[in-house]
């Protein structure tokens, strides 16, 4: 398995509809996968989205996955993936921007880090900046701007990095 062979495989995958290929030859293994975070326009993960995993019991400790484990090997994510949910900590009004004429904090498709502000939930004139507790990509904004939200209502779906 020489370098030019590997390059060929990479090209092949790049220009095909295949997202990932694994080849095993004489005990040597190579896996080539498309980087989903690239801007290459593979809508693939979005297509499978409707599986928002019906609220797994009042999400016990959402704090656990905030530190992404060091990636040893690029594990392909299963199609039935679950997105990390950012929920409203309080009852209030959801705002995507700090003021009506300002740019929204985040848009769908945007990469965020843990600690990035995603939105404001206002309650009783208290502006609560809601931060992401995880790094990843915003795949869905579940509430329209300036709408009331309930306690624990899902605001964002984040695809963990």
């Amino acid at each position: 398995m020489d370098l030019s062979y590997i390059k060929k495989i990479i090209k092949l995958v790049e220009h095909s509809g295949v997202d990932e290929i694994e080849i095993e030859e004489e005990g040597k293994k190579i896996r080539v996968a498309k980087n989903r975070n690239s801007t290459g326009g593979y809508a693939q993960p979005m297509m499978q989205m409707p599986v928002y995993q019906p609220v797994q019991a009042p999400a016990p400790q959402t704090t656990a996955p905030s530190v992404p484990a060091p990636q040893t090997e690029e594990k392909p994510k299963s199609a039935e993936k679950t997105y990390h949910e950012i929920r409203s900590p309080i009852v209030g009004t959801f705002y995507r921007a700090p003021s009506p004429d300002a740019e929204p904090y985040v848009e769908v498709g945007q990469a965020v880090k843990a600690g990035d502000v995603l939105c404001i939930v206002e309650a009783m004139k208290l502006m609560n900046e809601i931060e992401s507790d995880i790094a990843g990509t915003v795949v869905k904004i579940a509430v329209d701007n300036a709408r009331p939200v309930e306690y624990n209502q899902t605001l964002f779906y984040i695809d963990p990095a």
Partner: peptide, 27 residues
């Protein structure tokens, strides 16, 4: 309600609270 302070029916003090919330905690 919720946070104006008035004297003689007029506003004497305005308060703006800004919380930073992450996960379960108020940072």
């Amino acid at each position: 309600w919720p946070n104006d302070v008035l004297l003689d029916g007029k506003k004497v003090c305005g308060i703006l609270l800004e919380n930073s919330l992450r996960g379960e905690t108020i940072e």
